[in-house]
């Protein structure tokens, strides 16, 4: 029946993702080995005591040739042991610091992408096919959203400060008692602004919206939708189901972009997510931390695209048949 090819396809994807993970970790490891001069000196912060240097060299297998060094490092990393933080949070294990921060980052990026999906889809349905008037409207929108996320974030951060000074600190904003979540919360506010900065920046939203609108339009004009209409059935279910596949692809394709912009946006809003930790660790040359986070970021992209692939294979029978 259908289950066997599906399971085979899933296993093939799983193996492919494992291969990607190994390959990507190899690239990251080799980048470390590219360090000029004495690798240990190059990667350790100034004034690192010799015994820590020795430990670093052992952790990254710098005392061996690249290939055996890589496997030694891989064996430790595979069980989540990326060594100890040197500067950012001295003495603590990298994972203990990175994981909670990373969770916040994934939440922020995921919610941002989700918001982009909801807003984009809503607008695409509302606006329908592009007419001449909308082209006039989208041109300035295009210019605005071509702004890099960090410029948008800088502006938004200014705006947030102004907002807080002008309203919140004057007591102008209070959450009505019936409203379940606080409208203004000191800890939530930067996340909301950061999310919108990522949404608006790098053309993320505009690009997503254009893709969704084009997909929706081509689906509406698809012959099988006309056939469904002609037999008097509702087209909504058919359109929605067929939209899931491009939406999933779009979601996983945009994740690397979002995980890039989140780094800078977190830094600008000083949110203690993985991006902020990454940049702070990088400035302090806290090497184990930076490598551990790089692997985490990469692994997330691989795992999410694997999940997207699997769900797509469940929904779209042609994916399994294609097998690629």
């Amino acid at each position: 029946m259908r289950a066997v090819p599906l399971i085979l396809a899933a296993l093939r994807r799983l193996a492919g993702s494992a291969g990607l993970l190994i390959g990507a970790s190899f690239i990251i490891y080799m980048t470390v080995r590219l360090a000029p001069g004495d690798a240990v000196d190059a990667i350790s912060p100034m004034g690192t005591p010799p015994e820590v240097k020795a430990q670093l060299a052992a952790e990254f297998g710098l005392d061996r040739d690249p290939v055996t060094g890589y496997f030694a490092w891989l064996a430790r990393s595979a069980v989540g042991d990326f060594g100890e933080s040197l500067v950012f949070s001295p003495g603590e294990s990298v994972m203990a610091v990175a994981l909670p921060a990373f969770k916040r980052t994934v939440l922020l990026s995921g919610l941002t992408l989700l918001a982009a999906l909801v807003l984009g889809l809503g607008l695409a349905i509302l606006l329908g096919e592009p007419g001449p008037r909308q082209q006039v409207l989208t041109a300035p929108a295009y210019v605005l959203t071509a702004a890099p996320s960090f410029v948008v974030a800088v502006l938004f951060a200014q705006g947030m400060n102004w907002f807080v000074q002008a309203f919140v600190e004057q007591g102008g904003y209070e959450t009505p008692p019936w409203f379940p979540i606080p409208i203004y919360s000191e800890s939530l506010m930067p996340y909301v602004f950061a999310g919108f900065a990522m949404l608006a920046g790098d053309g993320l939203f505009m690009d997503w919206f254009n893709t969704l609108r084009a997909e929706l339009l081509s689906l509406k004009q698809a012959q099988f939708i006309t056939a469904v209409r002609a037999k008097g059935a509702r087209t909504v279910g058919h359109i929605a189901r067929n939209l899931v596949v491009p939406v999933l692809s779009g979601f996983s394709a945009r994740l690397p972009l979002v995980l890039g912009s989140v780094v800078i946006v977190e830094y600008i809003f000083t949110l203690d997510g993985a991006g902020y930790v990454l940049l702070e660790a990088s400035r302090a040359r806290d090497f184990p931390m930076v490598v551990g986070l790089s692997v985490l970021f990469t692994a997330t992209i691989i795992v999410v695209s694997l999940i997207a692939d699997l769900v797509r294979a469940l929904i779209d029978p042609r994916e399994v048949a294609r097998g690629g």
């Binding site: 690397p256 995980l259 780094v263 990454l278 930076v290 790089s294 990469t298």
Partner: peptide, 11 residues
């Protein structure tokens, strides 16, 4: 393609 561009550049 799986390498996150900005993160890799920071590395």
């Amino acid at each position: 393609d799986t390498l996150p561009r900005l993160v890799f550049i920071i590395l």
